[in-house]
């Protein structure tokens, strides 16, 4: 199934929370939805799930508008809402059964589905407890289990790993990745390393408008203009001489010392040029010992800050 968001807009009173955004998520794709607080992520998610009607624009899932809220589409969507709301007075098993029945899972497969989710989300020891008695991490697992029950073709997860311990985060990431190959997944998060680890595509939203759309690698490239190298040359006596020689290289734009690291420099090349060869050749010529040469990539954090601050 394919999610197609067309010119989606939501206006609350004087405030435009989401301002005409359009994108598509294809089957087999895991889309990471990023943005600072209040950027409109959750509002967008709520409109995609059909909980809220957009002021204008539309969301189509497999060509069917979410304004119609048809049962056929709704039961193919697994949704983990923001803050993971749960019926705290229900025991885990009873709760999952309730959700499975609401989603119209056939009587024959309800038990199998519940068993599968209990195993998948590691809830076996907690399954008879009331949800109110569970810790935050276990509640999060219950939230994920209810979203994934019945193998929905579309998964919409609002901060899926919040409250989980590091081991669990890795498990859930792997699970999402594994599911993502056959489903359409969209997840929102604040954790940038998570997006890097799980998502094929990133969407960044700021103040209600889309500011970036692409793979993690392509976004990093886009925001980086010049090549930056971190090098270290083991010539303790001739630091100044080395620096001068480096500055004279044709391709080099700027050199800065790396504070606290003897013989370390940060070399920014001129636009479009690469200094790797030149630095290496210079060292060979002078018989300097080059112990480090690392191309510095812009991190997603840098991209995120650049686009949203």
């Amino acid at each position: 199934m394919e999610i197609s968001v067309q010119n989606l807009t939501k206006v609350y009173g004087p405030q435009t929370a989401v301002d005409g955004i359009s994108f598509e998520v294809k089957k087999g794709e895991i889309m990471g939805f990023l943005g600072p607080n209040g950027a409109g992520k959750t509002t967008t998610m709520k409109m995609i799930t059909g909980y809220m009607a957009p002021t204008s624009g539309d969301v189509l899932i497999d060509g069917v508008s979410m304004r119609e809220k048809s049962d056929q589409i709704m039961k193919k969507i697994g949704y983990l809402p923001e803050n993971n709301p749960l019926y705290l007075d229900m025991p885990v098993l009873k709760y999952l059964r309730f959700i499975a029945e609401l989603q119209g899972i056939s009587k024959r497969s309800v038990n199998d589905q519940i068993k599968k989710m209990i195993n998948l989300c590691g809830l076996n020891n907690e399954k008879h407890k009331k949800i109110a008695e569970l810790s935050k991490g276990y509640r999060q697992r219950v939230g994920l289990a209810q979203a994934m029950i019945g193998d929905p073709e579309v998964l919409l997860l609002d901060e899926p790993t919040s409250g989980l311990d590091p081991n669990q985060i890795i498990e859930i990431r792997n699970l999402i990745k594994q599911l993502g190959s056959e489903k359409t997944v969209m997840l929102s998060t604040h954790i940038l390393s998570e997006v890097e680890a799980t998502c094929d595509r990133i969407l960044i939203i700021n103040k209600g408008t889309l500011v970036a759309d692409g793979t993690p690698a392509s976004l990093r490239q886009q925001s980086q203009v010049n090549e930056v190298l971190q090098v270290r040359i083991e010539e303790s006596d001739e630091q100044v001489k080395v620096k001068l020689a480096l500055e004279e290289l044709e391709t080099v734009l700027k050199i800065t010392d790396l504070p606290g690291r003897k013989g370390g420099f940060k070399i920014e090349s001129k636009s479009g040029d690469s200094s790797k060869k030149e630095v290496f050749n210079l060292c060979v010529k002078n018989k300097w010992i080059l112990t480090e040469m690392i191309p510095l990539e812009t991190s997603l954090e840098d991209v995120f800050r650049e686009l949203t601050v």
Binding site: K46, T49, G50, Y51, K69, D71, M74, K75, I77, Y79, P81, E82, N83, P85, L86, Y87, L88, I99, L102, Q103, G104, Q146
Partner: peptide
């Protein structure tokens, strides 16, 4: 109050 209304209304139920 708890937000479960969103959970309920995004399931296959009108």
């Amino acid at each position: 109050n708890t937000g479960t209304i969103e959970l309920l209304l995004t399931k296959a139920i009108t």
